[in-house]
Computed example of a mutant assay.
Amino acid sequence: MRILEHAMHLASVEGLDGVSFGRLAEDLGISKGGLQALFRSKQDLQLAIIAAARGVFNQQVVVSAEHAEDGLPRLRAMLEAWIDYLDFFEGGCFFTAAALEFAGRPGAVHDAILDAASAAYQTTVARINLARRLGELPSDTDTDQLFLELHGAVLAANHARQLLGRTDALDLARSVVRARLHPPHHLST
């Protein structure tokens, strides 16, 4: 839907609160009343934007990595796709911006963002655990720590690119992921 596509890009730059019926109507050349009939409230609009952004993330990151072999290859492919995803929205990672905006604000919008973040965490952890079970990562790998390291590289790349203007940020994140997910040669012993 053209409305949600534009709204996601706008929210990535100006935040979910920066997306209004008036702004969307003006930007898209449609009636404000028509938008309000579709979404009823600003919260409904925000929830629809989050759902659409979650669909983009799933397609761009999770599904795009399905071509890779199970285990470490799929985990690497997912992280590479996650880094590529930082280019999808004008404002970088939609969920990083939304999480910062709504972290301390309880309610349905916060819960929808939390649910999306939890799903990304669970998918990543499942792939880390599979790589560990397949012997592609050391058996004593701390799954939560590795998730934080990998996710931290993605978040740092988003921050460095969006705020600091670092054009090399995505390449640096890829280097961190490759180095961290390079299996030691002694795993088979």
Results as ranks from 00 to 15, higher is better:
residue 153 A to F: 02
residue 48 A to R: 07
residue 120 A to K: 08
residue 34 G to I: 05
residue 140 D to Y: 13
residue 1 M to H: 15
residue 21 F to C: 04
residue 47 L to I: 06
residue 145 Q to T: 12
residue 149 E to C: 12
residue 14 E to N: 10
residue 42 K to M: 07
residue 69 E to S: 13
residue 106 P to K: 11
residue 43 Q to W: 05
residue 169 A to T: 02
residue 163 L to E: 04
residue 24 L to N: 01
residue 101 E to D: 11
residue 15 G to C: 03
residue 104 G to I: 03
residue 145 Q to Y: 12
residue 95 F to H: 06
residue 9 H to S: 00
residue 138 P to Y: 13
residue 40 R to T: 14
residue 37 A to P: 01
residue 170 L to Y: 12
residue 61 V to S: 07
residue 33 G to F: 13
residue 82 W to C: 03
residue 163 L to H: 07
residue 179 A to T: 07
residue 61 V to Y: 14
residue 158 N to K: 09
residue 5 E to W: 07
residue 152 G to R: 10
residue 47 L to K: 03
residue 133 R to L: 11
residue 53 A to Y: 01
residue 184 P to W: 05
residue 171 D to V: 00
residue 2 R to F: 09
residue 99 A to M: 13
residue 50 I to Q: 01
residue 164 L to M: 07
residue 154 V to C: 03
residue 38 L to F: 11
residue 55 G to E: 02
residue 151 H to S: 10
residue 167 T to R: 15
residue 73 P to T: 08
residue 122 Q to C: 10
residue 56 V to E: 11
residue 6 H to W: 11
residue 52 A to I: 03
residue 167 T to F: 13
residue 83 I to Y: 02
residue 77 A to N: 03
residue 89 F to D: 04
residue 135 G to P: 00
residue 85 Y to H: 15
residue 5 E to P: 04
residue 139 S to T: 14
residue 67 H to C: 05
residue 58 N to M: 12
residue 79 L to G: 00
residue 150 L to R: 00
residue 107 G to R: 07
residue 110 H to D: 11
residue 79 L to Y: 13
residue 33 G to W: 12
residue 65 A to V: 10
